[in-house]
Amino acid sequence: MYFDCIHIGDVRSIRCNNITPETRTGKDGKSQDQYITLECPMRNKSDENWRVVSLCLQNGTLNAAANRLYYAVFQAVLGYAKAKQGYIYDPNVSAHSKMWQYVAADKGGYSYRRVFTKLMVLRKTADYEPETPTEKNIKSLMGDSGSMRQYFLKLAES
């Protein structure tokens, strides 16, 4: 079986049926695994950061945990913005406030705007302020951040 990989903007979608290990081979005989799970190219980055948050918390590296938590959600929103809103990075406009606007403008995402704002505060504190975010503060945002991340990843892939 051959997987037909279609590039639409920055989103890769695939058409495939009955995926088995044996069928994961393209015309050139190389593995096509890389195409199978990449519905939204930002999902892997978001997932990676999400996993790193837990590692950072285990290690007590709270600034890094706060930073990664923000980016785990940011990249999910970015994936949605690219896939569904035609967002193109403009070096003259910061992507952070732009993503906030996308969150606030989305009917379902509107309720997440305060979560996203809190994550921005967390990241600013971790990156620029002299104090370190508290573990309690980071953990208190994990639940809502996870929901928000999944919401926007699904939107991006819908």
Binding site: S97, R114, T117, M120, V121, T125, E129, E131
Partner: peptide
């Protein structure tokens, strides 16, 4: 958060509430 919704809702600005406790203020 309410200021964000009432005062500057029609602008592109985002207000970040960076609240510093007494202890953090004292220290930093």
């Amino acid at each position: 958060f309410d200021l964000q919704d009432s005062l500057i809702t029609k602008t592109e600005f985002v207000l970040l509430p960076m609240i510093k406790s007494i202890e953090v203020t004292r220290q930093y």
